[in-house]
């Protein structure tokens, strides 16, 4: 593979809360190539959003980058090696959209004005030229009647339409990476499909790289090239989509796949993973998934590390392909 666009290297993020130190991200490493779509999956609270926000430079008190680094085209962006605040990366080359389109736009500014901010900042356009560009962008994300829509306020848009506006804003600067943090979780199913289709189309057209955060493996299967599975602030497995679905290496991934309904495997019974993730205030020494794992062994108490599981596929477990069958037997 050519040089990675984004490298996350042993990233750690702590939150200094009143209840104690929460280690939300505990040594995450990832790379992302140009034009690649990476799915970041995991249960609620596993640190997906915090990882994304760290990459975007959006962690603030009580949180802090406790270690590691994020590099953009080899240049330090977050954490180690950063001398001063990088300019014009966030918002221009890396953009982000969020889970809740209902609250992501400023309610007191017209959609045109909010789009215009980005257009002015990164394309240097003003007035009529900026307006034309804004209308083109709305058009590109499938909002009809764009020039009239520009003068409307967010509350005049539906949830799906607002997410389209967010996407329009996120592609205005012609970025190279779009981070989408559960972009469809708040939307109903038909709208979800439209938004995902839009993202896929844009990626192809603009050659974007995308980090897609979700807990829906179905979405990952349809849209992503690679998957990273997070559990309790760590990445427990990464690999290509095909590989991970065919030979999941970590019992947690296996459980996730089993708990995802599939249209093509009618007789498979759905299983849910019993138990809850560990608290991140006192993260366990060894494998964080051990208490819920059907194939846990004494060796799982020792610190685990990612090990090769085939070409471009790593998992931090050696349990094998069928931990849940072993457990059930």
């Amino acid at each position: 593979m050519n040089d990675p666009l984004l490298e996350i290297d042993d990233l750690r993020v702590d939150f200094d809360t009143r209840a104690g130190l929460v280690q939300a991200v505990r040594g995450v490493s990832l790379t992302l190539g140009r034009g690649e779509t990476l799915g970041l999956v995991g249960e609620s609270g596993s640190g997906k959003s915090v990882t994304a926000q760290a990459v975007m430079g959006l962690i603030d008190v009580p949180g802090r980058i406790a270690g590691g680094a994020v590099r953009w085209n080899g240049m330090p962006l977050v954490g180690e090696g950063v001398r001063r605040r990088p300019r014009r990366i966030w918002g221009r080359e890396i953009t982000m959209i969020f889970q809740n389109p209902m609250t992501s736009l400023n309610p007191l500014m017209t959609v045109g004005a909010q789009l215009g901010e980005v257009i002015h900042l990164y394309l240097g356009l003003r007035g009529a030229a900026a307006r034309t560009r804004a209308a083109e962008l709305l058009d590109a994300v499938g909002i009809s009647g764009a020039s009239r829509r520009l003068d409307q306020y967010p509350h005049e848009f539906s949830g799906g339409m607002r997410q389209r506006v967010m996407i329009a804003m996120a592609i205005a600067s012609e970025p190279r990476l779009l981070i989408a943090d559960e972009p469809t979780t708040a939307l109903d199913v038909t709208i979800q499909a439209q938004i995902l289709e839009l993202l896929a189309g844009l990626q192809e057209k603009l050659g974007l790289s995308i980090i897609l955060i979700t807990h829906d493996l179905g979405i990952v299967a349809g849209l992503c090239h690679r998957v990273a599975v997070m559990y309790a602030g760590q990445i427990v497995e990464t690999g290509t989509v095909d590989d991970i679905f065919a030979r999941p290496g970590h019992p947690y991934t296996q459980g996730l796949i089993r708990s995802t309904p599939r249209l093509d495997a009618v007789e498979d019974r759905l299983v849910s993973i019993d138990g809850t993730p560990p608290g991140l205030r006192t993260p366990p020494e060894g494998c964080a998934f051990r208490p819920r794992c059907p194939a846990a062994q004494a060796a799982c108490h020792a610190p685990q590390r990612l090990a090769s599981h085939g070409a471009g596929h790593v998992a931090c477990c050696r349990a094998g392909v069928d931990a849940w069958d072993v457990g059930a037997a």
Binding site: L58, G91, F98, S104, E117, V118, S173
Partner: peptide, 25 residues
């Protein structure tokens, strides 16, 4: 608020966020 997070993600500076977004709101 989430929309301030959006504004920050857009790369707007603190001054502009204060002037154009939060103070007005």
């Amino acid at each position: 608020t989430q929309y301030v997070k959006t504004a920050r993600a857009k790369g707007l500076g603190l001054g502009r966020i204060l002037r154009v977004h939060t103070l007005r709101n």
